[in-house]
Design a binder for these strands. Sequence first.
DNA 1: CAGTCGATTCACT
DNA 2: GTGAATCGACTGA
Length: 213
Amino acid sequence: MIAGPERTPLPRAFFDRPVLEVAPDLLGRTLVRSSPDGPVELRLTEVEAYDGANDPGSHAFRGRTARNGVMFGPPGHAYVYFTYGMWHCLNLVCGPEGRASGVLLRAGEIQVGAELARKRRISARNDMELAKGPARLATALDIDRDLDGTDVCTAPGAPLSVLTGTPVAPDLVRSGPRTGVGGEGAPHPWRFWISDDPTVSPYRPHQPRRRAT
DNA sequence: CAGTCGATTCACT
DNA sequence: GTGAATCGACTGA
């Protein structure tokens, strides 16, 4: 089997750039998850940039903790966090090392392993919903904290890889405020998606949770 | 150590 | 559109 250029892993230098440069450049790339159950691959259609200690919306805003430590390490690695007691979300660490920036992978179009993804995403009503949203994406790919810190600059077959894929033409890239991010971080148009793509998740403004009784 | 909340999703009205 | 689910991380006392 011949591996075309689009099957080449993105080099570490790709991620070792400012996150606002990397984030839109990830659209159209191929994310490969190889688990014991088999491979699932998707084409990235929606991402969000988080710019480390400078960014009030970032987990790294208040400094390094046990959870976010990977973001302070070298670029090209996965930062996986657990939230709402139920869900995981996947980020890719960007450069320069120590800045603690990352890209949240919010949505994608499943291209390989749809049958497996459907088993993991029972509630999905159609294939376009399999990875429409960051926690759905992580569920479809069976991603959890075990993958925190995983190198993604790897050939397909490794647990997690990002391949060159087919980069999206710049005129098809849209940007807007980040989903669910409030406060000082809200105004930044650091969410990027592919224009008119049906797998992109709907925008939802930040909503503070009601107080428990 | 208790209180609060989250880079969300789903079922239901 | 509204509210519940569910728990680890973080905060401040």
